[in-house]
Amino acid sequence: MSDIHQRPDRSTPATSSGMETRPVADHEDALFDDLYSPDSRRGSGITRRGVLKTAIAFTLAGMTGGIALSVSRCSRQEVLQGFLVLRPGDASVLIAVSPAITGDDLPEVLSPSELMADPDKKDVLLWLQLLDQKLFQLGTDMTKEYLQLFDLLQWLPTRRVLTGQWSVWQDADKEQVSLFLDQWQASPVELLNKAHRAFTALIQSTWYSLDNVAISTGYPGPPLWALAAIAPVSDKENQ
């Protein structure tokens, strides 16, 4: 796994898809060098120092250039059609990480737009919609925290430090994702423990809201006799 933390040649573009089109404030280069702690370069995974630097850098970014960043984020990434808060990049992250979080593989999904078009993948679409509604209902401040987490996972420098993921999320593999989740879960950095809890609880609880997934546990569903007893009387019978 050590290769995931290898620093690629900065002259080659690390991005190849629309994922990385989000513009970055002028100070990105300086920020990048600062974030990029030598500890993490050795491939030992996420380091406390690296994360603390990220946190500090982001606090600073919030006070200075971060405003530009968030403004540009709004203009560049619009909410997915038919959704309330999720943007294409968020959906890509969720699709990429969910098998490592739920333990269930998803059907091959390449992009959110493909998902919308393919009825075979309707469970994945339904799951994303449930998750979207859940996020929306959390309330302004909590929704914003989640979106910030999604941003950190998409913006290249923070993504590298927080997850060790160099390539775009579509290319992530399950082992890589599991590795960073393990590190988040057991990390001495509280912020990562929080991110792990928030991320896994959101994805797991909405995943198990799907009937097919719920019954995969051995839960048979509500008793049939009770469902029959409460079945609504149709209008016809009513008259």
């Binding site: 979080i101 333990g103 989740l181 997934v213 719920a214 995969s216 839960y219």
Partner: peptide, 25 residues
């Protein structure tokens, strides 16, 4: 102990989480 509620305290991720969910009954 229903599946969604249980998923909130199964904890962990991936295979660990899933194995715990499989023990629901």
């Amino acid at each position: 102990l229903h599946p969604v509620f249980t998923s909130l305290f199964a904890l962990g991720h991936g295979d660990t989480f899933k194995a715990r969910m499989q023990q629901l009954p």
